[in-house]
Write a protein that binds this DNA or RNA. Structure first.
Length: 495
RNA sequence: GGGCCCGUAGCCUAGCUGGAAAGGCGCCGGCCUUCUAAGCCGGAGACCCGGGGUUCGAAUCCCCGCGGGCCCGCCA
């Protein structure tokens, strides 16, 4: 693209700076963007299965857990854009102790009076948990329920799975609000019922690393560089029943029948578990999943704790953000129809939340503060959305057609905008290749900022370079819409 | 006790395959009769946690500390 075009090199204080002449580059670049697949890659044909969220159905999402679906969903959008065939999946833990505890709670305690089902049912779970700790009879009942599930007792399995399903229904509403519902929900109970877990146990038992401690089977991982001396990875209890990771092995074997690559979005507390999973899969000569880990979100007073009542729920955060967007719109756009205003406020609120989470590198923890989370200025989703709406406003009002030669000399803000646009494919490639979602927001912000500068200095409609500038605005609009799309943020035509 | 992650202006973050420290919030001062001011322009503010080492050159790589997070169950 650069061949035969203007390039100028200068020496400045020991550095060799190369200056591009953007004028001859402008038309080809804008034509490429207008063609519609700028930044997208050629299809790879690779089937990627992204597992995200998979939170146990024990209560509503809080902001700490909300990082998972936002990262997972965005990763899916990004890899799809970059050419992969992507499916997302939520692994539903509908057996095991927590699910059995919830089932016990539903049977013995009354739900709270919150209108949303997960918020109401968490009361049952809380009380059941207290009973589990303080009442030996309750503990016995819960463990009995759990074991009956694993032994294939369908009545018990239905009760426990049903309880999880009720709670999950509420949680899924929250995911839908975020725009981060998974494509499929895979139930852990299906693995036990189908015999897949027993297969895994039999196969692992044949491993050279297999050991036995009073009937409980384990893999001896001394040779695998696992932390701590004498590390043993148990895959059955002495009763012969499976453990969580055993079932996870079965789940991954199932996944690999359906995909070429498995990508898991996990909290950093799952690092060791994930490592054990991979070793076990390796023992079975199966592929291993790739993981994206994220650090936890804390509150100014310390970590989030449901028990201590120090939590910020995702639903409350969304309500607050959308409410705030709505009152902003009421002030700024009294002319807008109220249904449209409502829809826009929803988009702005959820967009702002997603953007704020995605801005921070996954492996860095951060402290949640309402005032930061609700800031709609500067480096935020609304900033970029607003620039997109500006592009649309210009295009809506213009009569001319986009296209044509650039002016004899590009304005610095035109050049800056072209430069931002030109970076997009490389940003996509790197973000997708390195699974670095945090590269996307700065790209959106940079593009929006460049558009705003151009908007101030370069009149479009009625200018001598109207055709060219319309093409520039339209190109910006397209790329802006794509970045926002990857972030899961609506790109509004009006704001 | 051991393992992994993080530590950059008052605050939140980028930069970390080594080569001119970047953006936002907040603060100070300007800009709406011109395509939407959720915007734009200007200013103040950082010896990049500390100490060694490698290098012509370190926020970036190595070692030792300090501070914070996470993990180390026949739980999930």
């Amino acid at each position: 693209m650069l061949a035969g075009r203007g390039l100028r090199a200068t020496a400045d204080s020991g550095y060799c700076n190369i200056t591009l002449d953007w004028r001859p580059l402008a038309a080809p670049l804008l034509a490429e963007i207008a063609a519609g697949d700028f930044g997208t890659c050629t299809p790879t044909g690779r089937r990627v299965l992204i597992e995200h969220t998979s939170a146990n159905a024990t209560g509503p999402f809080h902001m700490g857990r909300a990082r998972n679906p936002i990262i997972g969903d965005t990763l899916a959008r990004l890899l799809r854009y970059a050419g992969d065939e992507v499916a997302t999946e939520y692994y539903v833990n509908d057996m095991g102790r927590q699910a059995a505890t919830l089932a016990y709670g539903l049977r013995h305690f009354a739900p709270g009076d919150a209108p949303k089902v997960d918020h109401a049912l968490v009361e049952c779970y809380r009380q059941a948990n207290t009973a589990l700790e303080e009442d030996p009879a309750a503990k016995e009942a819960i463990y009995a329920l759990m074991e009956r599930c694993e032994e294939g007792d369908t009545e018990a399995a239905d009760e426990v799975a049903g309880a999880a399903e009720k709670m999950l229904a509420g949680m899924r509403e929250s995911l839908a609000r975020l725009g981060a519902e998974a494509d499929a929900y895979f139930h852990e109970s299906a693995l036990v019922a189908g015999g897949a877990v027993n297969d895994v146990i039999e196969r692992l038992a044949q491993s050279a690393l297999c050991g036995d401690d009073d009937g409980a089977k384990f893999l001896d991982l001394a040779g695998h560089g696992i932390a701590g001396r004498n590390q043993r990875f148990f895959f059955t209890r002495k009763s012969g029943l499976s453990l969580y990771t055993t079932r996870d092995v079965a789940y991954h074997l199932d996944k690999f029948d359906r995909c070429d690559m498995a990508l898991n979005v996990l909290g950093e507390d799952h690092k060791l578990q994930s490592q054990l999973l991979s070793i076990a899969l390796g023992e079975l000569d199966a592929p291993t999943p790739e993981a994206v880990f994220y650090a936890f979100v804390s509150l100014p007073g310390g970590k989030m704790s449901t028990r201590a009542g120090r939590v910020v729920y995702l639903d409350d955060m969304l309500d607050e953000a959308q409410q705030r967007a709505l009152s902003e719109l009421e002030q700024r756009r009294p002319d807008m129809a109220s249904a449209q205003r409502q829809a826009l406020a929803t988009a702005i609120g959820t967009g702002a939340l997603r953007y704020n989470i995605l801005r921070v590198q996954a492996e860095k923890g951060f402290t949640f503060r309402w005032q930061d989370a609700l800031s709609f200025e500067g480096d935020s989703a609304p900033f970029t959305m607003y620039s997109h709406a500006r592009c649309c406003a210009i295009l809506r009002r213009a009569d001319g057609t986009p296209g044509g030669d650039p002016p004899s000399e590009l304005h610095p803000t035109e050049e800056a905008l072209l430069r931002q646009l030109a970076c997009w494919p490389a940003t996509v490639a790197r973000a997708a290749g390195e699974r670095k979602l945090h590269l996307l927001p700065p790209c959106a912000h940079g593009l929006a900022g460049a558009l705003n500068g151009f908007y101030r200095d370069c009149p479009v409609i009625g200018s001598d370079a109207e055709g060219f500038r319309l093409a520039l605005v339209d190109g910006t609009r397209r790329v802006l819409a794509d970045v926002l799309g990857l972030l899961g943020v609506v790109a509004p035509e009006e704001m």
